[in-house]
Design a protein around this nucleic acid. Structure first.
Lengths: 344, 344
DNA sequence: GACACTGGGGACAGCGCTGTCATTAAGCCC
DNA sequence: GGGCTTAATGACAGCGCTGTCCCCAGTGTC
């Protein structure tokens, strides 16, 4: 009862341990009858193979690491949590397990991290979250060691892209383009924009989408565009800069929800009613987005599915499939809630 | 370069592998000189021991599992994320690694989970999050298999408590008591309360704190107390029930922040200004609590530290320390923000 | 009938460590 | 100085699997 090994199963099924191993791993050489006998024995003994033993003797570890960095703060963590949820589910389905590792961005001991991942844990793959997924040093270290990487919302880096692993993302340009058009359709023309973190690829793409959607033949005045860092606090300053202008915009589109919520907060404090005097929109559809007042108009990305796809890619890859897309782009969708309305 | 083993280190240091093992594990028998030589060799080779091999041959796996359940939703996930953050940090410090497992509450295949944890992963300990940490079936399965458990915010179950593992928590009673007194100090007497999930131990304790603080010789009218489930949605209905009363309370204390935010949302929709016409308070200090309008008065618990303590307990325990408190109670603190004010 | 060939299955050697026990050199007591 | 303990180290046998090689029977094939 305490611990069934492959030997026990072999004895009960009256075959060699190698045959048990074959059956359990779905290898071809095994007659249907033998297979059934082994399965039955395994079930009756409540047998589960030891991960350590499999990893030690075989070439797979059944482990995937999700690496997140300290830089990620406040609400953005929800993004990570949701990704993780998806990854865990995909792992369960594939008999894998998810390790979560954490690294301080400051002390960049990427060598130690890599060594841990490769030598100590021998993970079958790594899921990298921004901004880690865009760090050339880390990426090349991992590539050197032959680690399968999946990058979440990575920078498109042309040539190097391929060797640095698969990626999952949404079409950030389109998302921002559509949101801007949504505001324009409501009649807004004076639409402020809060930029994302300059090192994050999605930030630039979202800004481009905004610019292209808004561009009507004339350039966009500088005063409409304020820098941000994807964090709530950075959104606060940007919102103030936008709203304290003599002729303030009728709508503000922030590059993500955290900053959009900051806009809501500043507007509240300044006594500017949303959406009647100011429309506010974001991107991400954080859980909190539907909870704030008024609920935020935003763009939803299928974060959980992206996490699941990331894990699945690693699992399939390790199992043999070689499929090497450059990256998979997921569908997004506009979520119109109450923070946007035609200007009055 | 690709993969240094203990043999390589032994060769370089000119000792046997057993000695390397001893040095690396901090076992006593090893001269200072040998120790230095081995350390140097290990460093120069960039050696990291293989977890699988260690787990297979030794009695420790250096793995801790954090088990969360599907029931956890929306903002509550942040609580889990923060716990996890703390646990990861403690793991890193102790050379451990954190696995995150997930289980659907509906399909209670706890046997499979336990088997995976014990046989497949051979984890050194498990961190259980509510409501999992209060499930007798799971707890007894794990206890049977001799798994070290740490329960987060567990139900105090007297007799059985001890054998079911260590626990970390805050003093929920005191937290609620103090918050209620804070509202009373501001002059509130008509203080509504939204209960937490009936299966969650903390819910009952918080309610008791509220009741005892408010009780002034007369019983508390039923209309002031509404059921909730710790979720935003449940908070919505409770808030409506409270605010649609002919004589509505001047303050509402929700058993957690998610529900307090729901109160904010309902008040906003009903045109009730907070805090001038209604004070709102919660417990947890979710990141979102400081972001909503107005920022929420709440009780902060040191969630990250609690996660770290949980992991540390398992690590120490596995390393030999036997220390068996029943549970560790962490300090909480009142965070007074803008959602509470004297009634007008 | 000899000769591949193939589907089904076993023997066996590790994977890289730790536990146990044995061994050696030193120190110590009377 | 012989027998004792003690500190420091090594030899060796696994831990529970998978990879590789090998064997054996049946089945065509000319």
């Amino acid at each position: 009862m305490s611990k069934a090994t492959i030997y026990d199963v072999a004895r009960v099924a009256n075959v060699s341990i190698k045959t048990v191993s074959r059956v359990l791993n779905g290898e071809p050489k095994a007659s249907a009858e033998t297979r059934a006998r082994v399965m039955e024995a395994a079930r009756s003994l409540n047998y589960t193979p030891s991960l350590s033993a499999r990893a030690l003797s075989g070439s797979r570890s059944f482990l995937i690491a999700l690496v997140s960095s300290g830089g990620v703060s406040d609400n953005a963590m929800l993004y990570v949590t949701e990704l993780q949820m998806g990854a865990i589910q995909a792992c369960r389905a594939g008999g894998y397990h998810l390790l979560t590792e954490y690294i301080d961005l400051g002390a960049s001991d990427f060598t130690a991290l890599t060594e841990t991942l490769v030598s100590t844990l021998r993970v079958d793959g790594v899921i990298l979250i921004p901004p880690l997924c865009d760090d050339p040093q880390l990426l090349s270290l991992l590539a050197q060691r032959g680690v399968t990487c999946v990058r979440i919302s990575p920078t498109l880096d042309g040539s190097a892209e391929e060797k640095w692993g698969w990626g999952v993302d949404i079409d950030n340009y389109q998302a921002a383009f559509q949101m801007t058009r949504h505001l324009m359709d409501q009649g807004h023309r004076d639409i402020g924009f809060i930029q994302g973190h300059p090192k994050h690829a999605a930030a630039a793409q979202r800004e481009a989408g905004y610019r292209d959607a808004l561009f009507d033949g004339g350039p966009i005045p500088d005063r409409l565009i304020q820098p941000g860092l994807f964090t709530f606090d950075s959104g606060l300053s940007a919102a103030r800069a936008l709203l304290e202008q003599p002729r303030r915009p009728t709508a503000i589109f922030a590059a993500n929800d955290s900053m959009a919520m900051a806009v809501l907060s500043v507007a509240y404090k300044m006594g500017i009613p949303v959406p009647s005097a100011l429309s506010v929109a974001g991107i991400d559809d954080l859980p909190a987005a539907s909870v704030v007042c008024p609920p935020l108009t935003t763009v939803r990305q299928p974060v959980m599915e992206m996490g699941a796809a990331a894990a699945r890619f690693i699992i399939d890859r390790t199992a043999g499939q070689v499929g090497s897309y450059l990256k998979k782009v997921f569908d997004h969708s506009l979520v119109v809630r109450e923070s946007t309305a035609p200007p009055t």
